[in-house]
């Protein structure tokens, strides 16, 4: 009986260790997964304007990882541009993150195409913060509260994506 406090102490210590292990593991394991808050980041877009993800809280964000060498990506871009024009006033913000190695190629591409939303250069660190961008295209749909509600890897069903965006815009 006299050692009950020691047992309780040990139990509490084990519980604390378990909790700390879970907490330490959680951010990396859950990064970029559904129903988690999208990791904030700050970059400068190709126009030289600072851009922070959190500045768009209150809007629905479509965060699209792409590259000039990615065929399916360049098929999506004109559609996303149209959506930005059509739904921008209703609360949609598309952000393009290029995973090209060469910024010059991206600038050349953007200059040729009438892209209606900001483009910034991504890197491995930004990809990792979203759980890893190991192939393209890849998009995250983020609701007005900053929560990831869709992670699309590969070629998305554009009609379903548009429906989901329209639903989110109506809700918020």
């Amino acid at each position: 009986m006299w050692h009950l406090p020691r047992v309780l102490g040990m139990t509490a210590l084990c519980a604390c260790l378990t909790i700390s292990i879970v907490v330490a593991d959680t951010p990396a394991r859950l990064a970029g997964t559904l129903n988690t808050i999208a990791p904030d980041f700050m970059r400068t877009d190709l126009s030289g304007r600072p851009l922070q993800l959190n500045q768009f809280k209150g809007r629905v964000v479509l965060l699209n990882f792409w590259a000039t060498w990615c065929g399916p990506c360049i098929t999506e871009i004109p559609v996303f541009s149209r959506w930005q024009r059509r739904y921008g006033d209703a609360g949609l913000q598309v952000i393009g993150v290029s995973m090209d190695d060469d910024e010059t190629a991206v600038k050349r591409f953007v200059a040729k195409h009438n892209i209606s939303y900001p483009i910034l250069m991504g890197d491995a660190k930004l990809g990792e913060s979203f759980g890893g961008v190991f192939g393209l295209p890849q998009s995250f749909l983020i609701d007005a509260r900053g929560r990831i509600v869709l992670r699309s890897v590969g070629e998305p069903n554009m009609e379903a994506l548009r429906s989901q965006i329209e639903g989110l815009i109506r809700v918020h």
């Binding site: 000039t68 060498w69 360049i74 098929t75 190695d101 591409f109």
Partner: peptide, 26 residues
């Protein structure tokens, strides 16, 4: 429709040399 669009872009890239970006660097 989606696959048609993608196929069109791919065919265009293969036939003409992709005009969209880095893949066209020589």
């Amino acid at each position: 429709m989606k696959s048609l669009t993608n196929a069109t872009v791919l065919s265009f890239c293969l036939g003409m040399g992709c005009p969209f970006g880095a893949s066209g660097v020589g």
